[in-house]
Design a protein around this nucleic acid. Structure first.
Lengths: 201, 201
DNA sequence: CGCGATGTTGACCAGACGTCAATAGGATCG
DNA sequence: CGATCCTATTGACGTCTGGTCAACATCGCG
């Protein structure tokens, strides 16, 4: 770990640093990921990190974006399956992913911000992506009824909370959790759909 | 604002500082509430603030706790009313409160932590309090079925998300939002209740 | 009016973010 | 194979903010 000065392709270096940031993220919350530490582990000077990421926040945003993309990819499964099967597969993937990376995930969703607008946006975009994915699989990509959209988005939050809460408190088994989340979506769509039809959507 | 040295009762001073922190919280996220600023506005030295709150985090925790308690009190309404009416009144109180304090609320739930365990706990306790309140009004204070508990907790997260999302995106009116949240709870209880009975709870 | 308790101060330290001119790896060209 | 240029990389510096501490001043009390 004492390579005096290794010249690296900028993209490779960025990728390396973001990768290290992701590893750190599983240990501590994003705020506590000190620039110095990353630089030390990467075997570079702090100055260089600031060369690639003008500010600490920029680095954090990059790491958060990577985490978000990873999460979205891991849960994008079951494309060939019928609607409900695909839903179940996705939920299972989500629950399992969060289960194996609980601290990292909580750090991502809560510890992320400090109220930074860009980080807030990364987090918000992730939820939007999940919401759109559900609406998409319902065949409602464009002009989804606002009420339905709100309901699905609420379900995304519910999914997150039920999963994290389950990992902390226990009291259920994995199957029950997945069932609950699945059934919740169906029920919520029914609620929103009926409401929407009733009001003339 | 140039009182040279005003001796104050410790409790009064604490209250004053937390109060100022709450005001600040409506402007910026908790992380950005600098000790120096609080001290300056309060007309005291930074050293004194550290005398009352050993660390910045302790101060933030105190402020967060105050915000949480305020939120809980404001939404604890409709005690005499029948179940569904009380639910609606509470949800309305919640939505209205968040609507008038959007930034402060988002700052509270997201910007809070930085992953600090104590702050996480304040936030988590707030959700627990909401959950217990709902279970309580259902007459299920003790030994609530785990599935129902999880469902209600998920609903709390849904409520939060739907409200905040509505304030950002619009597309619905207040009544629709409240209706959606109300109906969601009923539907989710049905889902969890059926599941629970089916599995022998 | 003096004395003690304690609320209060201001100077000090430490650690982390951010800057910048100088340095050196490595590819290219003669 | 050696000189040269580009640029990735460095490390010393400035600064801001959280946190410490011994001294001080204000109030209650005899």
């Amino acid at each position: 770990m004492a390579t005096p000065r290794t010249r690296l392709d900028p993209e490779a270096r960025r990728a390396q640093l973001v990768g290290l940031g992701l590893e750190m993220l599983s240990t501590r919350p994003l705020d506590k990921v000190a620039i110095d530490e990353i630089a030390a582990v990467a075997g570079i000077s702090r100055g260089l990190l600031f060369h690639y990421f003008p500010t600490k926040r920029d680095f954090h945003v990059a790491v958060a974006r990577a985490a978000s993309q990873d999460l979205l990819e891991r849960t994008d499964v079951g494309h060939g399956l019928p609607l409900l099967d695909r839903l179940r597969a996705s939920v299972e993937a989500f629950v399992d992913h969060v289960a194996t990376n609980r601290d990292a995930y909580v750090a991502f969703i809560r510890g992320s911000s400090g109220g930074d607008p860009e980080l807030l946006d990364v987090y918000e975009s992730t939820r939007t992506a999940f919401t759109d994915r559900v609406l998409d699989s319902l065949g409602l990509v464009d002009v989804p009824p606002p009420l339905l959209r709100a309901a699905v988005r609420g379900w995304v939050a519910l999914t997150e909370e039920v999963t994290v809460d389950w990992l902390s408190r226990g009291g259920l088994d994995r199957g029950e959790v997945v069932d609950l989340i699945d059934d919740a979506l169906v029920a919520l769509i029914a609620v929103a759909g009926a409401e929407d039809l009733a009001t003339g959507g």
